[in-house]
Design a protein around this nucleic acid. Structure first.
Lengths: 228, 228
DNA sequence: AAACTATTTATTGTCGACAATCGGCAATCG
DNA sequence: CGATTGCCGATTGTCGACAATAAATAGTTT
């Protein structure tokens, strides 16, 4: 039997263990904001919600703790991590370095197929920009950067980058307006993809690092705007 | 009552949860090689060994899985990860980028105290080199790089770096001889520390990146020597 | 004897129960 | 009246037991 390209729920349950499933489920809850930053997580509630006992939930939380999405206090429970802007800055320090590496490697190793997908993503983001659909743009933006790091062809780099940027998602502005930075952001994306298509490693690396820096600046701008 | 500088066992048990303690214990077992790469881990055995039930052990293993020291197969168990030289190369790709960042930041932010400790570590490594104590040198070398990343003053960077380099420890050559690379390695260390002391960010970053690259080359050399 | 099948055994996966601990509230005492 | 102390409900921490699965073994058939 040929495996379906999109893995079925059945397959997921058969290959992944229950704690792993629960872990991604809780992760969704956190990243979607349903479990707010700083909030305390009740093990029993989650176990009920997923129809399991507390064991798998506890294992999942231990995994999430290791990936820094939650923090745990003995006998008090686990809390959704709250990422301050100072921490977000720290993350961006690292991210800029990794983004440069991603750009360099992608320019050398991206396949034509991957390049096509990147360009398709650019178009989609353009469309989202046209109708000022900030939410869609954010989702597409995440996917775009995921595709980028994948096209660098280094599994460890992908892991490190994903782990790092997950932390950034925890720093969410109340009402992420972004102040019209969307068209600028996608213009930067296009320059990066162009450099990758030209196999210009140095330029792609430099541009992607600059894009990260600009993204950080936009975060600061939005943060100070939200504070007033 | 003033807290003791070195945390007592009591304090450790009171603040850290049992799974966390078990996790570092198992981590030691893995990194020391007592649990060999590729080997399957028996939950009950470990639980007996630590005098706990399997619950805390399972939680600890989830944490280790997230930090990529073990991998888990459903209904088959968890295995100590075996890192191939290709994976080690991937890790070094990322490590070089992070090391450059570490050098840059350390040059800007290292305190005089940290600088003194770094220089003390250099001396210790010199002594280990003189008597060709490879094992001590390795331990000191790990500590030195830990101190370096700490002196960069970025907690996220520290986390990312530690996680990454833990993976490298899993790539262990049978009988790590290193072929007399120790004096060279410490010479590179000294140049890095000198650049940091001079607050020359660009140079410190460049040198630390080069040191990582040289370290990778030494790994390759040792690997090909071991293969013959 | 080789190969396939049934059975046994060891190990993991999950659960419910009990013990330990914490935060809050009320009673007590200075 | 304020602070301390002792309960009380809620939640986490840990455990032992049972179910489910996979590997190892024995048994049967050709």
């Amino acid at each position: 039997m040929a495996p379906t390209s999109a893995p079925t729920t059945l397959q997921l349950v058969q290959t992944n263990s229950l704690p792993a499933l629960v872990q991604v489920e809780i992760e969704q809850l956190i990243l979607s904001g349903e479990l707010a930053a700083g909030e305390r997580i009740n093990e029993s509630d989650l176990a009920m919600r997923f129809g399991t006992s507390r064991g798998p939930v506890r294992e999942a939380l231990r995994g999430l703790e290791e990936s820094r999405l939650v923090r745990s206090e003995k006998n008090r429970g686990v809390f959704v991590r709250a990422v301050s802007i100072e921490e977000a800055d720290e993350i961006y320090d690292v991210r800029e370095a990794l983004d440069q590496l991603i750009g360099q490697r992608a320019a050398l190793r991206a396949t034509p197929q991957q390049l096509r997908e990147l360009e398709a993503a650019l178009d989609e983001m353009d469309r989202a920009t046209d109708v000022e659909d900030v939410k869609s743009y954010h989702a597409l933006n995440l996917r775009f950067h995921d595709m980028l790091v994948d096209s660098a062809g280094n599994a460890r780099l992908t892991e490190s980058y994903r782990l790092l940027t997950k932390g950034l998602l925890l720093f969410r502005l109340r009402g992420l307006k972004d102040g019209g930075g969307l068209p600028v952001s996608n213009t930067e994306h296009k320059a990066v993809v162009a450099a990758i298509a030209a196999h210009d490693a140095a330029r792609a690396g430099r541009l992607l690092r600059q894009h990260a820096a600009a993204s950080r600046a936009r975060m600061h701008k939005a943060a100070s705007a939200a504070r007033t």
